[in-house]
């Protein structure tokens, strides 16, 4: 375990700015088969990178327990959860769609991925950490109430949002999903509610899976206005993302004034990602993270938990996760890029 955290740009007296890492290496045991892009190496590459940058040693490493069944069934159909468990135990090769590969260890990994998000949100709510990142797999944001989709077995971020509401009585939780694919599962789980504001910025659904996330999807009934979709044309990069954040996403979040900010951090909008066609640089991901962190500082007392969704080019993924964490770990008002230079 990482133990005490020291702000790595110097000084050991900054517990208020502790960033936690909710990681469990058993998530690597979710084997998806030869050639599958959502592969165990994704986590290995991230860990290697965080060790190489010494960020690993600066993070508060949280112990992870499998999520309790009641936390999961607060957003998922119990029959689906049983079906998922059975598919894994029976040695099925996938559930619901060929994309969603499973192995006998996948159910345990899925419970730990959701459990990592519970641990991360608990650490932040109890003040043990200022914010947290959960590099987990299987990812979650495509998973629907009763159906796996697009590599996602349990909707980790939805489970965390519901946990914040049920366990801590929060009334306004925001989820920002910058994975390059539309976060259909998360949207559908909360689109009829006003207590969870869901924002997804993604490549246009005409080109990319799953084919939803049009700008006119704005929520349903009581949740009308609490869903914001920002589809961007293929080929979009830092400038387009920046414009979308400045003109739509950040003002909408300001208006919602969340008590807690959750991020579905997929890094597949990165330039070399094999599943999509966007060109966001590590600098672009750093900028988005910085703005979201500033927003959390302003509205949520800094309470922010980010979780890994997609990102399939290992080098880009590791680099982007590293800069994402660098921003989360930065002291307020500090430029982490400068701090990094000074620290090295």
């Amino acid at each position: 375990m990482g133990g005490v955290v020291v702000a790595w740009w110097g000084g050991n007296n900054a517990p208020a700015m502790t960033t936690a890492l909710a990681y469990d290496e058993r998530c690597i045991e979710h084997a998806t088969g030869e050639g599958h892009p959502e592969r165990p190496d994704r986590l290995t590459a991230i860990v290697q990178k965080l060790r190489a940058t010494h960020q690993w040693d600066e993070l508060l490493h949280l112990p992870i327990k499998p999520a309790a069944l009641e936390s999961i069934t607060a957003v998922h159909d119990p029959a689906y959860v049983r079906r998922l468990q059975a598919a894994c135990e029976m040695g099925e090769s996938y559930i619901d769609a060929i994309d969603s590969a499973v192995c006998p260890r996948s159910y345990a990994a899925a419970l730990l991925a959701a459990g990592a998000m519970i641990a991360a949100t608990d650490a932040v709510m109890t003040g043990r950490a200022h914010n947290a990142f959960a590099p987990v797999r299987p990812p979650g944001h495509h998973c629907e109430f009763d159906r796996s989709m697009g590599f996602c077995l349990l909707n980790n971020i939805a489970i965390a949002a519901q946990h914040l509401i049920s366990r801590y009585g929060l009334e306004r939780v925001a989820i920002v999903d910058f994975d390059v694919h539309h976060g259909n599962g998360t949207q559908h789980l909360f689109e009829e509610r006003s207590d969870v504001f869901f924002v997804s910025i993604h490549e246009h659904p005409s080109y990319l899976y799953p084919g939803t996330g049009f700008a006119w999807e704005k929520g349903v009934g009581d949740g009308e206005g609490a869903t914001l979709n920002m589809p961007l044309p293929p080929g979009s990069g830092d400038n387009e993302y920046r414009a979308a954040f400045e003109t739509k996403i950040l003002p909408a979040l300001e208006q919602f004034s969340p008590q807690f900010l959750l991020i579905s951090a997929g890094f597949d909008a990165a330039e070399h990602d094999p599943l999509a066609h966007q060109k966001v640089s590590p600098h672009g991901f750093a900028w988005m993270t910085r703005r979201l962190k500033a927003l959390a500082e302003k509205h949520c007392g800094g309470r922010l938990v980010s979780t890994l969704e997609g990102g399939y080019d290992l080098r880009s993924l590791a680099e982007c996760v590293s800069v994402h964490l660098r921003e989360l770990m930065a002291d307020e008002g500090e430029d982490p890029a400068m701090a990094m230079k000074a620290g090295m």
Partner: peptide, 8 residues
């Protein structure tokens, strides 16, 4: 295509 990964 019925997949998130048309790469192959």
């Amino acid at each position: 295509l019925r997949t998130i990964d048309p790469g192959p």
